[in-house]
Design a protein around this nucleic acid. Structure first.
Lengths: 200, 200
DNA sequence: GTATCATGCAAGCGCTTGCTTGCGCGTGAC
DNA sequence: GTCACGCGCAAGCAAGCGCTTGCATGATAC
């Protein structure tokens, strides 16, 4: 593709993630792309259009990466299937964390971008929900555990471990990944069916 | 106190919560306070000082409200003690949600305000941690459950239920409070000691 | 009554913002 | 050889920004 457009899109996404819509000035974006500000306006009609295109591209990439992640339709082993998936999502999430925080803050101001901003998170949530409902039907989850609540809890853990570490590093001794793993342990241990129920 | 200063402080906090530092212009703040912009600069040397004072006041109020919440030093009954506390914190958190989202996004840009921005959250986290460690020592928590992980999980649930509902209302059927309650059920059920362990 | 104080209002300054215009330069197609 | 095209550069414009100045007005203190 056009190398200039490419560089502008990635620069726009980076600056937007770090500074928000207002802070992402066309001069900053052009400078980061190593391009004259005028060139920016030769390729995109306005700052809104540029950032929209940049977010759309980021959204597409994220969705592609996430839907490549393995999470079977027919659950067989929660530990073996869920853990690698969650690990991968957390990594993607932490990588996009700066942008997610910006998206959360500017949500009300950028209705035009809603589909791009939280689409990947929604997709992950829905996929987890479907998987856990199937797991519950297959008897892999203790009957008392509501699959929706389990989904929420997993997403909450992803959410907090993807966003909070830069702000409260002292709260994650051993690193966010280790802390996340311990939370997942806790959740999975808590929803495992009792031994006698498995054999029924 | 001075009614004008008071109105300026609340207006500054509101506008900052909604629009962030850059978006909280002195003209907007003065207008919301029903005051001339010049009056603003007669009371505060700069916009930074005004917003700093507003955040400090909000911080003080939040801390006072939270430390008034009951959470005993000697845990006796997790369900009876933790649930009302968490309910209250969630309410406070959801009320401040707009501001928390802004704080998360602008964290790197506002180092001068760090103490005010996430202080209350830190306080809640530390209090929960101490309580859960004591509970574990008292045998109220299943030995395999790491108190730190439980704390993280509870905070994560607070976090996501305090921030996400405005953005994904469809994901919280029955309201955020009900969904939160189900998550807390799940966590508490998962960390309860086994019956035979209680009697040992 | 007069002095003091907080406030409103009109105007403006220097700066940044999104965006435009005009021109000149190099490269590849034919 | 030239011609179109993508780009850089210098300049600028209207609007909004934080912040200042000067002056008029009304309430309060003594």
């Amino acid at each position: 593709m056009d190398a200039t457009v490419e560089r502008l899109l990635t620069a726009a996404r980076e600056v937007f993630d770090e500074e928000g819509f207002r802070g992402a000035t066309t001069r900053k974006i052009a400078a980061r792309a190593g391009v004259n500000e005028v060139t920016l306006f030769r390729h995109f009609a306005s700052k809104e259009e540029l950032i929209g295109a940049a977010l759309a591209r980021g959204h597409a990439e994220a969705v592609a990466r996430l839907s490549a992640a393995p999470l079977p339709e027919e659950p067989a082993d929660l530990d073996a299937e869920l853990r690698p998936y969650l690990r991968m999502v957390l990594q993607a999430f932490a990588g996009a964390g700066r942008g997610v925080r910006t998206a959360l803050a500017e949500w009300e101001h950028l209705p035009a971008y809603h589909a791009w901003l939280l689409g990947p998170s929604e997709a992950v949530m829905e996929r987890l929900r479907i998987y856990l409902c199937a797991a519950a039907r297959a008897g892999l989850v203790r009957p008392g555990a509501d699959p929706d609540a389990v989904t929420h809890l997993l997403v909450a853990a992803l959410f907090s471990h993807g966003l909070l570490p830069p702000m409260m590093p002292g709260r994650f001794p051993g690193g966010p990944a280790a802390s996340f793993e311990r939370c997942v342990d806790l959740i999975l241990d808590g929803i495992r069916p009792e031994p006698e129920e498995v054999s029924r």
